[in-house]
């Protein structure tokens, strides 16, 4: 119930933000035509606000949200850090340690599987993409 009210309010805010700020800023004003650049975005923004109001007025009784937030945030953080490092050092240097860290956090301790994930998979990817397809790795 509470979740629905909060989510609904967030949607209404998003709709308002789009209508009064983002769309006028990020979509051009055009003086002719039936479907102008701003037409559909405005319709979407209004729909979002209506859905939000609907959720606030008619909340359904479901216990939401259910997720393991801290752990998910930790994994997401590792992936984002991995991407940042990849842009500097490339996949070949960042991929294997990233895989190793992910597996260790997930609780894997057996050396064979750790090697398979941190060495085997990146090597297989490298052979397929860089050698066989001649495409650049990230």
């Amino acid at each position: 119930m509470q979740t629905d009210r909060i989510t609904g309010a967030a949607l209404i805010c998003l709709g308002g933000l789009l209508i009064w700020w983002i769309i006028p800023w990020q979509a051009e004003e055009v003086g002719y035509g039936w479907l102008r650049p701003r037409t559909l975005p405005y319709i979407i923004a209004v729909s979002l606000a209506i859905c939000g109001a609907w959720m606030m007025l008619r909340p359904v009784a479901e216990a939401l949200p259910h997720a393991n937030w801290p752990r998910a945030a930790l994994y997401a953080g590792i992936l984002i850090a991995g991407l940042a490092l990849m842009s500097r050092f490339g996949f070949l240097w960042v991929g294997p340690p990233m895989a190793l860290v992910l597996m260790l956090i997930a609780g894997e301790r057996r050396p064979l599987w750790l090697t398979a994930g941190a060495v085997g998979t990146p090597a297989a990817i490298w052979v397929c993409v860089a050698v066989l397809l001649e495409r650049p790795l990230p």
């Binding site: 842009s87 996949f91 990233m98 895989a99 992910l102 997930a106 057996r110 398979a116 495409r135 990230p138």
Partner: peptide
């Protein structure tokens, strides 16, 4: 295979697949 291995390998594949299909690091972002 163990979940840790499968999920991690899938993540690496997604990184590379998306970089191929959708314009490199920007696509991954």
């Amino acid at each position: 295979a163990p979940e840790s291995f499968v999920l991690t390998s899938a993540l690496l594949l997604c990184f590379v697949g998306v970089s191929l299909a959708a314009g490199g690091l920007f696509g991954i972002g």
